[in-house]
Structure formats: structure tokens, C-alpha cells
């Protein structure tokens, strides 16, 4: 019984930590009033998704996804699963590009209205 409990916690603690990081990012998006802080919350949310994908790719007693002649490739459990790593590699760079585009929008908003606070912006627009 106790062995089973320890196995359960060892198998799931990474998921719980990524969910905590995701909740921090969601709090930043929903409750902060400055638009820059909202963008930082979006980045934290995205990094939690990246951590989740990388954590589900792991196997115990496996090595990195580069071929070593001493380790046979016929046995699949010798190497990590390379597919989530590939997907996240592109997602990180696209995230940086999206961050640049959103900051360009924010600079334009600041040049036009002189503020980045959400409530003041709504008052000035209407």
C-alpha cells in the first residue's frame, strides 16, 4: 500500500507542478490590469505547456535522443521519445516571435493613448 502511494506520487508530481505554473500564468492574464503584465502571464502559461510536453516524453533508464553506437536502437525503451521535443522546439521560437509582435502592438498603443492600464484605456476609447 505504501509502496503504491510512493509510486503514484513519483509518477505524478511533475504534472502537479506544471499545473501550478499554469495557474500562476492564468492569474496574471485575468487579474492584472497592466497590459505588459498580462503579456508576461501569457509567457508563463506557454512555458508551462512546454514543460508538460517535455515531461510526458521521459522514460526511466533512457538516454537522450542522439544515437550512441553502444546502445542498440532496436529496443525502443533505450531512448527518449523524440516527437514532443521536436514539437516544442518550434513552439518556443514561435512564442518569441509572437512576443515581439505583441510588444510592437503595445508600443503603438502607448504612443497613441499614453497609457497601458486596461481601465484607463477603456475610458479613453469610449
Amino acid at each position: 500500500m505504501k509502496k503504491k502511494m510512493i509510486d503514484f506520487i513519483l509518477g505524478h508530481y511533475a504534472y502537479w507542478f506544471t499545473i501550478i505554473i499554469m495557474c500562476i500564468g492564468l492569474y496574471g492574464i485575468l487579474f492584472k490590469r497592466n497590459l505588459i503584465k498580462k503579456t508576461i502571464g501569457l509567457t508563463i502559461f506557454q512555458s508551462s505547456i512546454v514543460l508538460f510536453y517535455v515531461s510526458i516524453a521521459s522514460k526511466w533508464d533512457a538516454t537522450v535522443t542522439v544515437l550512441d553506437e553502444n546502445i542498440p536502437i532496436e529496443n525502443v525503451s533505450n531512448y527518449l521519445n523524440p516527437l514532443p521535443h521536436t514539437l516544442m522546439l518550434t513552439a518556443i521560437v514561435v512564442g518569441v516571435a509572437i512576443l515581439g509582435a505583441s510588444y510592437a502592438l503595445l508600443i503603438n498603443i502607448y504612443n497613441r493613448y499614453g497609457t497601458l492600464d486596461e481601465q484607463e484605456l477603456l475610458d479613453k476609447i469610449s
Binding site: F8, H12, Y15, I19, I56, S58, V76, S77, N81
Partner: peptide, 19 residues
């Protein structure tokens, strides 16, 4: 969400369906 994560497969188990 933490309760939903409890039914995910164990992390690092080589017998998972995706491995």
C-alpha cells in the same frame, strides 16, 4: 485540474501507450 491529472499515466513508464 490536479484531480484530473491523477488519472494521467505515470511519468517515465516505458510501457505507456505513447512509447
Amino acid at each position: 485540474m490536479i484531480y484530473a491529472a491523477s488519472s494521467l499515466p505515470y511519468r517515465g513508464d516505458p510501457n505507456n501507450l505513447m512509447h
